[in-house]
């Protein structure tokens, strides 16, 4: 006999998996839009370290001359991205799930311990309820980033009607830059997220589909009797 631990409510699983293809569409259509004007690069002095985006990347993803198409996808799927995000936030706060999600005062120290553990420097990982400190920080950050994308997006979508918002986000050009940076943030998050999910193993992953984790060993009622003293 094993024990089932309910981890992710059905609503959270739906929000998670609906968000995934929507975000893919938003990022892809965003790239089609970005192609038409590509000012961003990372450089030190006059040395360009990385240009967003190199030609091989643009060619591989076939991003050329598709601005109109990109804009249409972006401005259709923005609704789904927004609706799904708003429902997720509402659900998280009404259901009480926020208690697992938001970082608390232990989270930052815990996140550091988790990082040391993940890097193999620390032997034990801190005990956790549903999410550890690093997860709480990461998943809350991604939520804030979502809000950021929405606001900077609106700031560049209607810079005259919402000129106050555009000014607040640093002006038209800055809002576009932040909209872009946040997208790069999602991609980095995605890479780390996949890596961590693979590392955490099947039981953890399948819980995002089934909703539950399976507890292999029953928790001990009493601590084991001390064996021969050293």
């Amino acid at each position: 006999m094993k024990r089932i631990i309910h981890k992710h409510p059905l609503a959270i699983r739906w929000f998670h998996w609906i968000n995934f293809p929507i975000l893919v569409i938003m990022i892809w259509s965003g790239l089609l839009i970005y192609w038409a004007y590509q000012p961003y690069k990372i450089q030190i002095g006059d040395t360009v370290l990385f240009k967003f985006f190199p030609n091989w990347f643009i060619q591989a993803l076939n991003l050329r001359r598709r601005l109109a198409e990109g804009m249409s996808w972006h401005f259709v799927f923005m609704w789904l991205f927004t609706i799904n995000g708003v429902l997720y936030v509402l659900y998280t706060f009404i259901s009480g799930e926020w208690r697992f999600l938001l970082p608390n005062r232990r989270s930052f120290r815990e996140a550091w311990q988790v990082t040391l553990h993940d890097l193999g420097i620390r032997k034990t990982a801190p005990p956790q309820v549903k999410y550890n400190g690093a997860q709480r920080i990461a998943y809350t950050a991604i939520l804030l980033m979502g809000i950021g994308s929405l606001l900077t997006g609106l700031a560049i979508y209607k810079p005259t009607q919402f000129s106050g918002l555009t000014t607040l986000t640093g002006g038209y050009e800055n809002a576009r830059l932040w909209h872009f940076i946040l997208t790069i943030g999602y991609v980095l998050f995605f890479v780390i997220h996949i890596f961590q999910v693979v590392r955490a193993g099947w039981n953890n992953f399948q819980a995002m589909v089934t909703g539950f984790e399976v507890e292999k060993k029953l928790p001990e009622k009493t601590p084991p009797a001390p064996t021969t003293p050293a």
Binding site: K130, V209, F212
Partner: peptide, 24 residues
């Protein structure tokens, strides 16, 4: 009180497998 994930009573392997398959 920290909200804790809800634990179910003991479940048989077969039931777990059935629920997993259904979910997938």
């Amino acid at each position: 009180p920290e909200k804790k994930p809800h634990r179910e009573e003991l479940t048989s392997e077969q039931q777990i497998r059935r629920r997993t398959l259904k979910a997938f």
